Simulated assay, not measured.
Amino acid sequence: MSNSSNMVKVAVVGGEGIGPEVTAQSRRVLDWFVARRGVPAVMRDAQYGLIPYLATGKVLPDETAEAMDEADAILWGATGGPETKEVPPAARKAGSLLSLRRKYDLYANLRPIVANPALADSAPLKPEVLDGVDFVIIRELTSGIYFGEPRGIVTLPDGQRRGFNTEQYNTNQIRRVARAAFELARTRKNKVCSVDKANVLETSVLWREEVIALHKEEFSDVELTHLYVDNVAMQIVREPRQFDVMVMGNIFGDILSDCAAMASGSLGMLPSASLGPIDRFGRRKALYEPVHGSAPDIAGKGIANPLGSILSVAMMLRLTLNRPEDADLLERAVQSALASGARTADIAEPGAKKLSTAEMGDAVLGALDKVAGRAREHA
């Protein structure tokens, strides 16, 4: 990678399953912005998963770890799939996405949920429910039950087996992700909904108390509400437009963000950003990835939807590269491509032409040329 201090370093890690296919298209889009808009980014490609494991004994080989350590931003594809059985559990765990989140302290996961009018006919929810939907889920990503100790499976004296995990949060873990939610809300509709299960769980009692205290101390100008997680699951499919910014713990965010995908039309449409703390130079480590998984059933077929990965590049443009106008340009290009009828199989209406992964990339790049040309004409 370039050592130039004004260049943003991006590690491109396609990963497994459909990850390399969709990431290849978002890489093309990022290359377009570098070449056509002068975006100051330099990319370094790196491997992850079964292929490097067979060569090096590590799913996350040293070269990839170095590329990610050096990077300001990581463009990530996907992890997991049938090939995981060919990798010993210890090797898989050592290079897991959870371990990367902890290593880089990527504590705040942002998942924007925007209903696209062009996809109304293929969305699972009614158009009137989706009208005007535009909210962001902020999920705490490095604590909670996925990281808590003790954990394990033991055999009891009577021969039964018992599995156990530990859900825990402390003040700092709660407050820093809540602060991210309040700060984001100030740039949007100024509303935060904090999600918990305070009627049952002590961790949620603490969560609610700390969010309320932080709100009173620093963010009293932001409207704050609280909902139980089970109610939120219902509200997301009943009236999703009521939400602006939602903040929640790790396991709740994992489940509800996939539920919220139905308010955008398809899981394949959703981008995400996982953000670390801001350092003394004003920079923060960030990992950008589509919300979908590795989808091993369609891997290698060239039919996966790359828009979640492409829209993750828009988040990178906005949050790491500080290029909001370029982020808006890319989002308009995706909207334009969809409005012109570009569809992969997962978002296609019955009888509609289905584009391949690469063809959807072509459609977005073509739309970028048109949208950028119109922007120049009106400049």
Rank of each mutant, 00 (worst) to 15 (best):
E149C: 02
R111W: 04
V222E: 07
K197P: 05
Y146C: 04
L130K: 09
N199D: 14
L110E: 13
N231K: 06
G159C: 12
I145K: 01
H215T: 11
G148D: 00
I153G: 00
T187H: 12
V129L: 11
T155D: 03
L224N: 02
G144K: 11
T142E: 07
G132D: 09
P127F: 00
V195A: 09
K189C: 10
S194L: 11
E140P: 02
L184H: 06
P117L: 09
K189I: 04
P117C: 10
F219G: 02
G144E: 07
G163I: 00
R176G: 04
D158A: 12
N165H: 03
A108K: 13
D230T: 15
D131A: 14
M234Q: 15
E218M: 04
Q160M: 11
V192S: 02
A185I: 03
R186K: 14
F219E: 03
D196I: 07
R151C: 00
L141V: 03
V211F: 05
A181M: 08
L214T: 07
R101W: 11
D105I: 04
D121N: 15
F135R: 03
E183F: 03
N165V: 00
T203Q: 06
K189F: 10
R139M: 05
D121I: 03
Q242R: 15
R238M: 13
F182Q: 04
I212E: 14
G144Q: 10
A118Y: 05
E128I: 06
T187C: 10
A123Q: 04
G132F: 05
R162T: 02
P157F: 06
I113V: 15
V200P: 11
L125N: 09
R151D: 00
N170T: 13
P240T: 12
Q173G: 14
G163R: 00
T225P: 01
F147C: 07
A120R: 13
D134A: 15
N116W: 01
V229D: 05
E239V: 14
R208K: 15
M234Y: 13
I137G: 02
E210H: 03
L184Q: 08
T155L: 00
D158Q: 12
A233S: 15
I236L: 15
Y146V: 06
P127K: 03
D121V: 07
I137S: 01
Q173L: 13
R139S: 02
K126Q: 10
V177K: 07
F147N: 05
E128Q: 13
G144W: 06
S194W: 07
E217C: 07
F219A: 02
V200E: 12
G148V: 01
K197N: 12
N116D: 14
G132H: 08
F135I: 09
